[in-house]
Amino acid sequence: MHLAVSLDIASAPGQAGLTFGEIAAFVRKTETARIDMVVISDSSPDGERSTSPFEATTLVAALATVTEKVGLVANASTIAHQPYNLARRFASLDIISHGRAGWSATMTQAPHEAANFSCPDGFSDDDFRRRAQEYIGIVQGLWRGWDADALLFDKSGGRFHDPEKMHLLDHKGEFFSVRGPLNVARSPQDTPVLALSGLSEADFDIAARTADVILFDERPAEESRARHDDFKRRVSACGRKPDAVKVLTDLSLTTDRINGLADRLEEAFHSKNCDGFNILMPAQPSVFDDFADRVLPDLRRRGLFREDYRGTTLRSHLGLTGGGDR
C-alpha cells in the first residue's frame, strides 16, 4: 500500500506555530519510516488566523534540500497563483528536490479566498470547476514544454539547447491564455506529481484524466469501495490504466486509534477500497511516532508496506510512470 502524511502546519490560535527545524525533523522521521510523501497544507485565511509562519511552496523548497528521499507535496490554490507562475514554481521545486515534488490542488473553493485576490465575489461552483480544469491542463502542458533531452550544454558548438525540443503551449481558453513555454527545464521525474483533493462526483472525470494521486475523505467501507470502483472505471474510460492513479483515503491519526489500526488498514486495503492512506497530522506531530513504532512494523510483517524506497523520485515511490494522460 501507499502511505502519505498530510501535515497541517497551521497551529491553533494562540499556540506557537511549528518552527522550520521542527517541521524538518518531522519530515525526516517520515523519510526514515519510508513514507511515500508528505503533503504540506496551505491555509486560507478564513475565520481564525493560523500562526504558521510559512507558505507551503517556499517551505517545501527549503525541506527539499534537507531531505533525500521522501516525496514533498505542497498545497497551492488555483485562486492564489496564475497558472504560469504555479507551473514554474513546482517545476523548480521538482529540480531542487531531484524529482520528489508534487502539487496538491483542491477542487473545492475555499470560502472568501478569492476576495483576497481582487475577485470579491469568488466563482460559482461551476465556473470554479471549469476554471480548475482548464488551469490543470495548462500547468501539465507547461510541465511538458521541454523534452527530457532538450538541453545539450554543447560549449564548443555553441548549442545550449535543441530548439526543436522546446514546445510552445499556445493555450487559448475560456479563462486563460498562455503561450509558454515554461522557462524551467523538464522534471527529473517527467512531471511533478498532481494530487487532487476536495473532489465532488462532478470532478471525478477531470481527476480521472489528469491526476496522479487522489486524496479521498474517510467514508464507511461500502461507500468507500463503491466510490473507488466508480473512480477507477472512469480512469479506464479515459484510456489510462486504473493503476495510473493512486487513490489514498484520509486517515485521522489519534493515539487512541493506534490499537488494531494495522488490522483495519489491511482490511480496507484488501477489500480494494483504496491504494493506500493519507494520514492526517495535526500541527503537533508526535503521534506519528506511535504509528511508525507500532503500526508500520506490523504492516511490514504482513507484506503490506515496503521495507525501503525502490527509487529516488516520488513517481517511483508511488509506482507511477510519466505524468497525466498524454
Binding site: A61, A62, A91, I96, F160, H161, M166, V184
Partner: peptide, 26 residues
C-alpha cells in the same frame, strides 16, 4: 527568436522564490 535563444543559457533556470527558499536554510 528560438535559434538565438538556443545559443544562450537563459531560457531555463530555477524559479527564484523557490531557489531562495532553498538557499535560506543553507
Amino acid at each position: 527568436n528560438v535559434d538565438i535563444a538556443s545559443q544562450t543559457s537563459r531560457s531555463i533556470g530555477f524559479e527564484p522564490i523557490s531557489l531562495l527558499s532553498a538557499l535560506a536554510v543553507h
